[in-house]
Nucleic acid binder design. Sequence first.
DNA 1: TTCATACTTCGATGCTAGTCGAAGCATAAG
DNA 2: CTTATGCTTCGACTAGCATCGAAGTATGAA
Lengths: 243, 243
Amino acid sequence: MKEGPDIAQLGALIGDPARANMLTALMAGGALTASKLAAEAGVTVQTASSHLKKLESADLLIQRKQGRHRYFALADDDVGALLETMMGLAARRGLTRTRTGPKDPALRKARVCYNHLAGELGVALYDGLLASAMLDEVDGEPVLTEAGRERMMQFGIDLAALETQRRPLCRSCLDWSARRTHLAGSLGQTLLSRFESLGWARREAASRVVHFTERGETELLATFCRQDQNSHGNRSQRIMRDT
Amino acid sequence: MKEGPDIAQLGALIGDPARANMLTALMAGGALTASKLAAEAGVTVQTASSHLKKLESADLLIQRKQGRHRYFALADDDVGALLETMMGLAARRGLTRTRTGPKDPALRKARVCYNHLAGELGVALYDGLLASAMLDEVDGEPVLTEAGRERMMQFGIDLAALETQRRPLCRSCLDWSARRTHLAGSLGQTLLSRFESLGWARREAASRVVHFTERGETELLATFCRQDQNSHGNRSQRIMRDT
DNA sequence: TTCATACTTCGATGCTAGTCGAAGCATAAG
DNA sequence: CTTATGCTTCGACTAGCATCGAAGTATGAA
């Protein structure tokens, strides 16, 4: 009847549970081997191979051979963006998976959302920035205040470099575990890598889990989430240990 | 293994050809009856009913009863946004449907993309605005120039009102028929409804086709696509009748 | 009431596509 | 060479789901 881009093909590709698991595992931005992806998806390697072939020939994944391993990664930022969009909508629609796994608590606490920090610590950071008046929300969009700019530069963020980029500095991103927002955008991304280079946090190898050290977590909260900074800061509830 | 929002459920819902057709038909923003959607999807009403039930219970569609008719529409702007994202990616990946239908030429010429004008006339408008220096592109994002602002106000667009909104005035949107961009954003939307109220164009009842009158098309090109306006205007190729 | 239209539900059918076992390549190590 | 590992291909099986005919419900018209 119609002509044009086929949403159905795309949807069907993402619509299979095994493939969806693989894509979700790759959302952290890294590259994983075929066998790792098979384990993540909960299928045998033969099945995974078949899926990966389909995803690759649709240009959703790219493949890099290295020795006898084959590493797969998302082909493009567009793919990641689509997956994020779907995640967001699925979360808001209450389309959640039932079977829950062992990594779940760690994932809920801190994880990578595309390339920035999400989970409890992610929303705590966002709330803290708001409460201490480093961040402000105008028309629902987060904006860095003058105080925030200073603190970020003290913290070693090259704001000037970030602001020359096309992508927005601050964006809000809806969290699916907590029903709150956390900080995305180039600043969100840069902050996460800064946390890592400071040794506050490290990413778990083949998952989206982010492990914060005891000290890292304390420092994070002290640096960005002190309520008694400039404002009275009751704009956000404390939600640190609510699970 | 994991927990969280289930991309797979969403994907599977959109992944069926019949459902994808229905969703695509609803992207124009209107509400259609169940039987009309069945026809659009090329299935019987029983089958359509089953699909619509699923889409509704996933909160992708909403239903409004009116007499013995049931009108369905996209539940939310988020759904439309997701579909647009998927359309864009599918187009860039070359995932296009093969079977082409009778409405195809009309669709290619002018159609509704979510709520603004797409198709050949859409990209002609965009190119014309660029060529006559009413629109400029900074960092890939379209921006209205001073000359453009004046012309829009002459044309009866209430720019001041649009600019108080959250959503951006100008956005670019990738066309899937022509591989070009056309104008989205609140200005894009307002322009299309202005075309309609001027009698230049009207939307076909239950499709995304936009019919321009002979005069409407001429006026559109004269008003926004005169090359010999202020600039030398070779920044865009003419592509009007290239199919 | 009777008939017509719009839509849903039920039941049966048929096909697609995901799944895994077994075997086949390819690369690396001993 | 032989052995081990990582991955792909082939083939067969099976489950799930889209599909439609037939019957059932709801609204409107005559």
